[in-house]
Every structure is written in C-alpha cells, then in structure tokens.
Design a protein around this nucleic acid. Sequence first.
DNA 1: ACATAGAGAATTGTTCAACAATCCCGCAAT
DNA 2: ATTGCGGGATTGTTGAACAATTCTCTATGT
Lengths: 230, 230
Amino acid sequence: MTATDPWADLLAADRALLDRTSTAERVADVLRQRIIDGALAPGTRLSEESAGKALAVSRNTLREAFRLLVHERLLVHEFHRGVFVRVLSAEDVIDLYRIRRLLETSAVRRGENPDLVSAVDSTVSDGERAAAEERWWDVGTANMRFHEALAALAGSPRVNDTMRQLLAELRLAFHVMSRPEEFHKPYLGFNREIADLLTAGDREAAAEKLDAYFDAAETQLVAAYRTYQD
Amino acid sequence: MTATDPWADLLAADRALLDRTSTAERVADVLRQRIIDGALAPGTRLSEESAGKALAVSRNTLREAFRLLVHERLLVHEFHRGVFVRVLSAEDVIDLYRIRRLLETSAVRRGENPDLVSAVDSTVSDGERAAAEERWWDVGTANMRFHEALAALAGSPRVNDTMRQLLAELRLAFHVMSRPEEFHKPYLGFNREIADLLTAGDREAAAEKLDAYFDAAETQLVAAYRTYQD
DNA sequence: ACATAGAGAATTGTTCAACAATCCCGCAAT
DNA sequence: ATTGCGGGATTGTTGAACAATTCTCTATGT
C-alpha cells in the first residue's frame, strides 16, 4: 500500500463508482429527482405505506431516505403526522437569494481557474441553444447549472454541495408559479454578459453585474411568488 | 386561525419546544455533542450493536441518527463496513477555511444590524473573561461563537445553519492537535479589534482585518495539522 | 343547523427477530 | 510472501408487532 504503485491512485478515483450506495440513498435519489422535476408538488404528503409499496422498500429503509431529504430541506417532517414536500414561504425565497448572492458573488470575485471559467461559458451556450429550440425546461436547467458553475469558481467542494442543495430547494419555488418555463428566459442575456466578462478576466465587473442580476431576479421572483401563493 | 389572536404568534413560537423530537434526533444530538467535545475521537468506529446497546435504542433508530450525522459530515459511512467519526484531511481543513472566509467576510461587509453587532462584541468579552481565568476550553468555545456571530451578521437562517455545521466539522481538526486548548488564545486580540471596528461601524476595515486573520489562522492550523497527523 | 365528544380506523414511532450480503481474520497450501 | 478458503462477526434490509398519536366520522345535545 506504499507509493510504489502509480496506477493505484487512478483506480482509487474510480472507487466511488464501484462502492455502491445503499437502498436508502437510491430511494432518496429518486424522490429528490421527483421533487425537483415537480412530479411531487409542494405540500404533497408522502405516506410511508404508499411510498414504500410504490418503491418496493420497507418502511425502515424509506424512513432513512426521508431523513436525508428532510435534512436537505426538500421534505418537512411533522411528528406523528408524516412527511410533506416542502412548501417554501416568501421568506425562504428571500433567504435563498441572500445566501446565493453571498456565495456566488464571492466566488466570482475570487475564482480565476480557467477551466472553471470555460465551464461557466458552456452552461450559457447550453441555455442559448435550448432557448433557440424553445426547450424551456432545459433553459431553466441550464440557468441553474450556470449559477452552479459560478459558485464552483470558489473551488470549494463544500460550496459546491451547498449550492447544489440551495438550487434544488429553489426549484420548489418555481413549481408554485404559473409559467415556470419562461421565468429564466429574460436572464439569458445577463448570463452571457457575465460569462463574457469572466472570460475577459474582469471578475470585478462580472461580480457587479451578477449583483444587479440578483436585484432583478429576486424582486421578480418574490413578487411572482407572493402572487401565486395565495 | 385568523390574525385576531395576538398571543397566538407567541405560542406558535413555543410550539417547537412542545412538538417533541424523535428518538433518532435526540440520539443524533448526543452523538454530535460527544464528537464535538472530543469524547469520540476521529477515526473511532461506531458499531451498531455497541452504540445501540449503550443508548438503549434499536438498530433502526440508531441508523436513522447515523444518517443525519453522515449528512452533517461528522460521520463517514462505508458500505458494509460501518460508520466512523470523520477524520479530516488537510484538504478538508483548507476547504473549511475557504468557505468560512467567503461567508464571514461577506457577512461582515453587509451586516449592519446593531443587535447582531453587539452579539459579536459579547462573544469577544466572553472569550477574554475565559482567557483571564485560564479556562482554555471555554476560550475555544467563545472563539467559535465569535465566528458564528460574524456569520450571523448576514441575517440569513441558512447561513447560520451552514456556519454551525462548518464549525462543528472544524472541531474535528482540533482534536488531532497536541494542544488544542491554547490554539485559540493568540486570536483573542484579533477578535477584539474586529469587534471594535464593527461597533464603530467600519465594516470594510473589519472585513479586511478578518481576511488577515484567516491568512494567519489557516496557515498555522494547516501546518499544525500536517504535523500532528502523521 | 352546528358544535362537541368520543369511538374506531388509520398512520406514525419504535422495537425486535430473521436472513442475506459482505467484510474481517486466521490458517493452510503453494 | 502471496493466495485461497473457511468461519465468525457486522452491516443491509425486510417484515411483523405493538404503542402512541392523529384523523375521521358518527352520535349526541343544544
């Protein structure tokens, strides 16, 4: 197990692929996906019996999966009443934007890794292509990945995790709106400008434009959210 | 359930105290505390049978608690091998400082709530008092709470949660050092200066001093960490 | 008609026992 | 020293059972 085997590191990197996940984690994966894509609407109650029967897992395993998603804030757990798909309040949406602004602008100001910058750029291209072909759901996804890529400029695994989680949580907000498909479209231009500034190396200008984006997007989403919530 | 009952909001705030937590959460609480205070050293394996017998809970309940702590990164779970108290790598420590720097400096730059600023100040006073009485463990705790209070300047519940979790994780690093008790002492002066700048309203200067603090603390901790790790 | 109380059903919380799958450890064989 | 092979221990997952709590619906009284 000494450093005499240079290929050992290569295989070690692949270990995660082999190491298999538990049933509970896979159950959490599918539930997470269904929540994110809106099949499980906010407020939906997930009974242990129905969910367990549907996924063909035992109650115990299911409860482990529930715990994970509660911790990720995608589900809420009410004692002796069951678990529900989270319903975000307007304050939640505001808070999500607050922390996103913090993370993303800081990451943009400090991140200079060329690979990560070009990764940002390609997410914008994806969004533009999806918009041209009117695949609105994909536009939204590309927009999410754009911001994920911005946060990734920080070069921190924990920031990446946090960001992924925040964006998943934010998806809950879009599902209560009337036309979530077209919500992201107006921001494609913003994204392009920010990506170009980053590619040009002007991180400060990119960060300021991002800040302006947050001003616009947050007020719009909160307004739309308050409207369609009642 | 309308807004006609002013006292209803008051009681609603206390609901969390009543509403009872599950056994799994309470088990997670005690394990978390034991990990944070060092009773369960990094690398320790927690077998389901021993832990379950010790805490008088069933394996299933225990496993739910394990899931929570794995999600908080205080435990690691190796498939078919069990759960272990997390052993931080030097890269982990670096990453923890990276995200802390991001969150805390941003929070300091934007946070102006007077109550939150005075909360920062009181944590410094606590630390000074503890140092004067040579209660080194309390000095460390006060230092942690100082940084928690800094992050709280952002006024974001999610930032608070993230910060609490990061600091708990960071405690894992201190336990592998030789004299964790005195590690925090040199930074008391820094904390005082930052608190005073904040009280004076000079947030930019406070943020810059905090940045300098991170430069110092990170290199020292990483160096110490790399030494005592081998 | 409406509110209330209470019985019974349904759901969650937790434990326990069982078995399959996997890992760990020691020992023999080469 | 490495490999192959049990046997024991631990984890992964299930199913059943029962307690605790919530939900539902009916009966009752006003």
